[in-house]
Amino acid sequence: MNGSEVQFWSFVTAALLMIIGIYAIIFMDNIIKKIIGVMLIGDGVNLVLITEGFKPGGIVPIISEKLYNQSPGIFQEFADQASYSLPFALVLTNIVIGASTLAVLLGITIKLYQHYNSLSVHEIFKEEKI
């Protein structure tokens, strides 16, 4: 079991999360489980990005100023070993976006429940015309 195998199975995990999320959105009747499905798809994409940045046998891409000042030569070593940190920045943004979408969706859920007294999607979207 080496690092690239971890990367492969991590991609598989991400794909599974996305598939489960799509399944939940399409087939689950409960509105809260549908919302969890949206969250799962976001998590899956985040995991893809994180795995892209992962470098087998690498180090966390954080260097302290103190360490750098002690021996500037360490920076070359650091740059060789650190994982690719651009995807991590993208993931941070996406986590925040996903959280705000989730919050709005949950707020709508409470309002819809107050009106229909049900969490079932079939019940709520019953009289929907195309």
Binding site: S10, L47, I50, I59, F88, L92, I95
Partner: peptide, 15 residues
């Protein structure tokens, strides 16, 4: 925890 193991420490804290 998986993010932490995949060397994304800053994301791991947020997550």
């Amino acid at each position: 925890l998986l993010y932490q193991r995949l060397l994304a420490a800053d994301v791991a804290v947020t997550q």
